[in-house]
């Protein structure tokens, strides 16, 4: 019994210590972001490996998610004779929820795990210590550009996901199932608000980009510098990012859309 309590105490304490280290790491990273700006090349390289290389998986998943929404929505709505509202349903669910959330989950799986593995391996092969020896701050040189790139790429990826998904829903809806194309777009435009729907969706994706990049970079930086440690850190990145994204999504949704 005493041993169990001891274990529990140690677990709690280590997780709080880790959270503290993570917060400190985040503050260091954010103060390092300013020193990235004079060196745009670093940022550009990271935008390529984080943003451009995630482009394909995001657009293809977006297309299929939109198409499935179109199909499923049609079967439910046609029971009520409301097929014309298919556009509203597809667009609202994509812009408000699925766009930011699913693209953030894909982002954590595609780009986040790669970041953790890369940084963890740099640590394991002592490249980070080597930089420190040469008086180069690894946070400024390695971490901050990646953080900024993830933070900037995420809203763009989420917007692409939603846009492609809405087009996918339209392809299935009016191409396959015979929903009127004009009604699809006009009902969508009548019901969706720029401020309430689009901007809130973008805010969500910015928050998710921030959190997913932070977790991925911190797990890599904090990994035990062995091959097993890096592999565990990569797993933790995906698991923790998914938890944080879904939890934050609930909180953000209640704040944004709770009153209607």
């Amino acid at each position: 019994m005493i041993e169990f309590l001891q274990q529990l105490g140690i677990k709690t304490r280590t997780s709080f210590t880790k959270l503290g280290r993570g917060t400190f790491f985040l503050l260091q990273t954010m103060s390092g972001v300013l020193s990235v700006l004079p060196r745009p090349r670093l940022l550009l390289n990271q935008m390529h490996s984080i943003g451009v290389l995630s482009f394909l998986i995001i657009t293809i998943s977006g297309l299929f998610v939109g198409m499935v929404l179109g199909l499923q929505g049609y079967y439910t709505l046609s029971d009520f004779g409301a097929e014309e509202s298919l556009g509203v349903m597809v667009a609202a669910s994509l812009v408000r929820e699925l766009g930011p959330v699913v693209s953030a989950l894909l982002f954590a799986g595609r780009a986040g795990s790669a970041l953790t593995a890369e940084i963890g391996l740099m640590k394991a092969t002592e490249q980070l210590s080597g930089m420190e020896m040469m008086a180069v701050d690894p946070i400024k040189r390695i971490i901050s550009p990646r953080f900024l790139a993830g933070f900037l790429s995420m809203p763009l990826l989420a917007a692409l996901f939603s846009a492609v998904g809405i087009i996918g829903g339209q392809l299935v809806g009016s191409g396959l199932l015979g929903v009127d194309e004009g009604a699809y777009w006009s009902q969508m435009q009548a019901k969706l608000d720029f401020q309430d729907d689009i901007i809130n969706g973008v805010i969500k994706s910015i928050v998710f980009g921030f959190v997913a990049s932070w977790i991925a970079l911190f797990e890599g930086y904090d990994a035990i510098p062995t091959s097993e440690g890096v592999s565990r850190a990569t797993t933790r990145t995906v698991v923790n990012s998914a938890f944080s994204i879904l939890g934050l999504d609930f909180i953000l949704t209640t704040l944004m859309f709770g009153d209607h």
């Binding site: 943003g51 667009a91 812009v95 790429s153 809203p155 763009l156 990826l157 917007a159 692409l160 939603s162 846009a163 492609v164 809405i166 777009w185 969508m188 435009q189 009548a190 969706l192 608000d193 720029f194 729907d197 689009i198 969706g201 973008v202």
Partner: peptide, 14 residues
């Protein structure tokens, strides 16, 4: 990405 955002702003919302 920016085209996507513009698409959402102009074509999807009011």
């Amino acid at each position: 990405g920016i085209v996507g955002l513009f698409f959402l702003a102009l074509q999807v919302s009011n």
